[in-house]
Amino acid sequence: MSPAPAPTDNDKKTMTLSHHLSDALIVDYASGSMGRAQSLVVATHLHACAACRGRVAQAEAVGGALLEEIASTPLAPDALDRALARIERPREAAAPEAAAGHARQPADWISVPVEVAEAAARRRWVAPGVWVAPVDVGSGDGALTYLLRVGQGMRMPQHTHAGCELTLVLKGAFDDAGVRFGPGDISEADDAVEHSPVIAAGQECVCLVACDNRLIVKDWLGRVVQAYAGI
């Protein structure tokens, strides 16, 4: 669980988030050393959370300071002239590229990346009340990212947390050892504790999950989910 200080969330979306990124995740993300599966989940939390965006900005400032103190390596003698030649042309507009996907953002989820919205079309029911949809992040490092839907009142599939597992609530809520995780909240599995979160009453819960495919899965539902979570 994140030990982050209680943030003042001044996000336009006025979402009240309780569970944030740990400092370790903030640094991995800001330094660019995070794997693709995890970083998709982290980016989705950041999109909803101004407080954690600020913490990433602070960690980037550390990166900036390190860039200042690093020793210089000379470039080719004509490097500056080449660069200046390339900026002779009119400045390219910094227009954002058109979003490729036309998959619609589900109205009752927190804002998700285009590829996550697209992945929802690949959902497969794997047990009563449970569907899984793999998200293709092209990680190639044995990490999985997937959408997981679990019906209200049900138990979440169980893992033993051998690899770092991140769970981000997109819709609904679950309770883990008496702690509520709602939309936008992120849960970082710790090394020792075995969790068995329960979906809160009232509505289904949809989560975006990143985990190591080599996780040892404890229960039958977890094994079924893992089997269908790969692209």
Partner: peptide
Amino acid sequence: AGASTWIFAIARNLRIDAVRRQRRPRFE
């Protein structure tokens, strides 16, 4: 952001793209 921080972020993103490491997804 300070100048070096901003330039660090640009360099980091270029490297991420070069090694297809971390992901910078697009939102609508």
